[in-house]
């Protein structure tokens, strides 16, 4: 009844990647494709092994994940606190929400010039940029989630004479949890995207995008493809972890 069919492994999903891999290999091995523009799979694999054995992969991952999580923590904490404030205070909601909705329309990357002027080109600027990406989804989702607490259940807590702390921990947070988790999940994905963006648009720094930048500069397509695979795999892993946590903490919900 409550089994999530999407998490069950279905080998049919491998058919398309397998086909692409075969075509890729065939095209490069037969000389149909220019290997300077389309690096052969073996070369990408060799690059990967080289990066792993030299330790550069782990160094880059560590640096990128560090700034990703710092930005995510900063942005989602700010989003959660402000979202909660707007949900419980009608005055704050009316004062601030219209501006926030307007500000949301400023594309994330349009913030880069301003951030780099204010904070420079270094880690503080990158983390703020990532934080901004995580901020909005958590803000709007926690706002909605906390506001969705029904009057009926709030009355139950009055009947049982809950104090403020009990209301927050026993009613409001659990009731808003599905939406807060959805916001955090989105924020985790957005902040990873923003991490790549931050490494790209601010001063170059060690990270997962180093192979992408270097590969482009050296016209080393194997390195570029390797870099893309790493970025994609980390994103997928973060998404999987978030889904897993979300499902575990929301096991009371009826099957989706």
């Amino acid at each position: 009844m409550s089994h999530d069919t999407s998490s069950r492994f279905d080998p049919r999903g491998l058919a398309l990647p397998g086909l692409v891999l075969a075509l890729w290999w065939g095209a490069t091995a037969s000389g149909f494709a220019d290997t300077r523009i389309v690096a052969p799979p073996a070369e990408v694999l060799a690059t990967a092994l080289r990066e792993i054995s030299s330790g550069e992969l782990f160094e880059g991952l560590l640096a990128s994940l560090g700034r990703d999580l710092a930005g995510f923590a900063l942005g989602s904490t700010a989003g959660l606190l402000l979202g909660a404030l707007l949900a419980v205070s009608g005055l704050a909601d009316r004062l601030v929400s219209p501006s926030l909705h307007a500000l949301k329309q400023v594309a994330l990357f349009a913030w880069i010039p301003l951030i780099s002027v204010w904070l420079g080109q270094d880690e503080a600027a990158r983390v703020l940029f990532i934080g901004l990406a995580a901020f909005y989804p958590v803000l709007f989702n926690s706002h909605e989630g906390i506001r969705s607490v029904t009057r009926e259940l709030a009355e139950v807590t009055r009947v049982f004479r809950f104090n403020t702390r009990q209301r927050i921990t026993r009613l409001i947070l659990p009731a808003a949890a599905p939406q807060i988790f959805a916001g955090l999940h989105l924020a985790l994905i957005y902040s990873w995207l923003a991490t790549i963006g931050a490494e790209y648009f601010f001063k170059a720094t060690p990270g997962v995008s180093t192979p992408l930048l270097d590969g482009r500069a050296d016209f080393d397509m194997a390195k570029v493809l390797y870099g893309m695979v790493v970025v994609g795999l980390v994103g997928a892993a973060l998404n999987a972890i978030a889904s897993r946590l979300e499902q575990r903490s929301l096991k009371w919900r009826r099957s989706r």
Binding site: V159, F160, R161, F162, P174, W252
Partner: peptide, 26 residues
């Protein structure tokens, strides 16, 4: 004073015993 509402008003994220325990919180 206890009350039973028309709509049961159970907390969907709590089990049966946890819902009953809610009344004993204080």
């Amino acid at each position: 004073r206890g009350i039973v509402f028309q709509d049961h008003r159970l907390f969907p994220w709590l089990s049966v015993e946890q819902n009953i325990g809610l009344a004993l919180e204080n």
